[in-house]
Simulated scan of single mutants.
Amino acid sequence: MAMRLIPMCAVLALCACKPPATDDYVERVDLAETSAAVGEPLPSPDATDAVWAQTTADRIVYGIPGQVPFLALACDVNAAGAAQIHITRFAPADARAKALLALIGNGHIARLPVDAKWNGQAWLWEGSVSADDPRSEVLTGTRKITATLPGAGMLDLNPSPMPSQLVEACRQKQMAAAPPKLAPKSAQ
């Protein structure tokens, strides 16, 4: 009996060294440091009457005419000739936040990293994907696409050939900017 009592006393002594978790830990946090709290989630926008419109040769926007657009797609080609599809979701973002934009449509699913970027007036969600990245396939085709962003709701993108045309034109720019491949020397 005494042999069983010694291990029990050791366990009780260890438990006494560290108190159990309590709700008092909240009081140890300086509330002034928590001022960068996450904003309230936004409802999903009503995109029933939204349409795609071309704003430049390399940029299209999606929204209700006469209002701030919901989303923009653009083809950007950098100095190295790499073409990228740049996506902007016109929804308020918390400063320097990061998220994944989920796109579902045309038989594809893509999760694109987006960052909150300051455009001079507001923090908006922006990200890019290479024009030849398989994730850009979600934008090709003529079916409805849904774009879901945490805190900004789900946006229905009505069917249109314009996103597919932009992606294809961007891919063509990348191929045109790519350096020519050298033909292998033939054995003589």
Rank of each mutant, 00 (worst) to 15 (best):
M8N: 03
D76N: 10
Y62Q: 04
A10D: 06
G151M: 06
A37M: 04
L166E: 01
I60W: 04
K144H: 01
P113L: 02
A16G: 15
A83D: 06
Q165I: 01
K18G: 03
V61M: 09
Q54C: 03
R96Q: 12
Q67I: 10
S160A: 12
G107L: 07
A82V: 15
R143W: 08
A152L: 08
L157D: 02
K117V: 11
S128C: 00
S128H: 01
L139H: 01
A16V: 15
A37K: 06
T48E: 10
D49F: 09
L166H: 01
V138Q: 02
A177M: 11
L155A: 03
Q188T: 14
G39F: 10
Q188I: 15
R135E: 12
A16I: 15
D23F: 06
K18P: 00
I64T: 09
V11L: 15
L101M: 12
P19R: 12
A110G: 01
C17S: 12
A10V: 15
F90P: 13
P161S: 03
A36H: 11
A147K: 05
G81Q: 08
L12Y: 11
A53W: 08
L5G: 01
R96E: 14
E27P: 00
A79S: 09
L112W: 04
S128Y: 01
M8A: 12
D132Q: 07
P41M: 02
D23M: 05
Y62H: 05
G153N: 03
A72L: 05
R171M: 07
A99Y: 03
M154Y: 10
L71C: 08
